[in-house]
């Protein structure tokens, strides 16, 4: 490979990182407050909920499926938490919420793997059902959380905020599962080619089912972290958050077609999205510019990712030279 091509490829492979540096420099030049340590802490705290959701979404995307119901799962579990569990010690409440979320994930997983319904349709249906149940339960009222829950937002260990701790714990767990276990390798195999994986003896349906449960579990935990931050849930809670989670995963290099990506990339994607939003807030940008800037950066990252994939495919393609006549 020529050195120029190698440089271009290196650039494309690290495009999200380059984009991140450009974002940092741009906002850093516009406001000295942006590059403050306290602001980075802020960004990671704000990225924690969407990052946790996106980690769960990564598992499902890696198997070439999608879960559109995570926002509704968040809303349902948060509503149940507000209505029934706030009197319990928070670890117990969190446990119950994650169990409920896992049940939702199991239902999605069963419909997809046993009935063979496309995940897009399955989770779109559960989105409406779960949101409807949550609205019925809450009578569409805003449900406030008591201080014992919201104070968790300001709690931490050794000065590290609880949201960052939760984010780090979920990331570490997901990284170990995906990269250090046979189960993780099987997920990639199923996403790459489910039929080939099945022929190789991998229980593809069971793997896919487990990924839906993991995704819903992350939605439960991510929802819990969110309510500690925002203090109340209303009928719009979790609305369209699935798109942000998918965007974070794709920004981090996870393929929508399965089999490619990592949770480290997803975490990076979530932080990049929140960095852009934070930067716009910090420089007091014109409110009309927000969607333009955020959308452009996501589009750019995804376009570069597509270009990188195409170039890599081209470079890796084996060429067979025709025999030349003497």
């Amino acid at each position: 490979m020529k050195s120029g091509n190698r440089l271009a490829l290196l650039g494309l492979q690290n495009a999200p990182l380059i984009l991140f540096v450009v974002v940092l420099l741009t906002f850093g030049l516009m406001s000295d407050r942006f590059l403050a340590i306290a602001n980075f802490r802020n960004i990671v705290i704000q990225a924690a909920p969407i990052g946790i959701l996106a980690i769960g979404m990564t598992f499902v995307l890696l198997t070439a499926q999608i879960d559109l119901s995570i926002g509704a799962t968040m809303y349902l579990t948060a509503s149940v938490l507000a209505l029934a569990f706030t009197g319990l010690p928070w670890p117990v409440a969190l446990l119950l919420v994650t169990v409920l979320a896992a049940v939702v994930g199991a239902i999605n997983g069963l419909i997809v793997t046993v009935l063979g319904v496309a995940s897009f349709i399955t989770t779109l249906s559960t989105l409406f059902v779960l949101r409807g149940v949550a609205m019925w339960m809450s009578e569409t009222r805003t449900l406030p959380f008591p201080d014992r829950i919201t104070d968790l937002n300001r709690a931490g260990v050794l000065g590290i905020p609880s949201a960052i701790l939760a984010f780090a714990a979920i990331f570490a767990l997901a990284w170990v599962v995906l990269h250090q276990t046979a189960f993780g390798r099987q997920i990639y195999a199923v996403g790459e080619d489910a039929e080939a994986a099945r022929k190789a003896g991998i229980p593809a349906k069971r793997i896919t089912f487990a990924c839906f449960v993991i995704c819903a579990l992350c939605a439960g935990v991510g929802g819990f972290v969110t309510v500690t931050q925002i203090g109340a849930v209303g009928p719009k809670y979790g609305d369209q958050v699935e798109f942000a989670a998918v965007a974070a995963a794709v920004l981090g290099g996870v393929s929508l077609f399965g089999g490619r990506g990592s949770v480290a990339g997803t975490v990076f994607g979530a932080i990049l999205i929140k960095t852009v939003q934070n930067g716009l807030n910090i420089v007091n940008a014109d409110p009309y510019i927000y969607p333009l800037v955020t959308g452009s950066i996501i589009f750019l990252a995804v376009a570069v990712d597509g270009l990188r994939t195409r170039i890599l495919d081209t470079l890796n393609r084996r060429t067979i030279r025709p025999l030349q006549a003497n």
Partner: peptide, 23 residues
Amino acid sequence: VARIPTEWDADKAFAGLTNALQA
């Protein structure tokens, strides 16, 4: 000093005001 578009989204409102208070 801060004009925060929330899109009527609680999460964006929380993050936006927190960021504005940071700046």
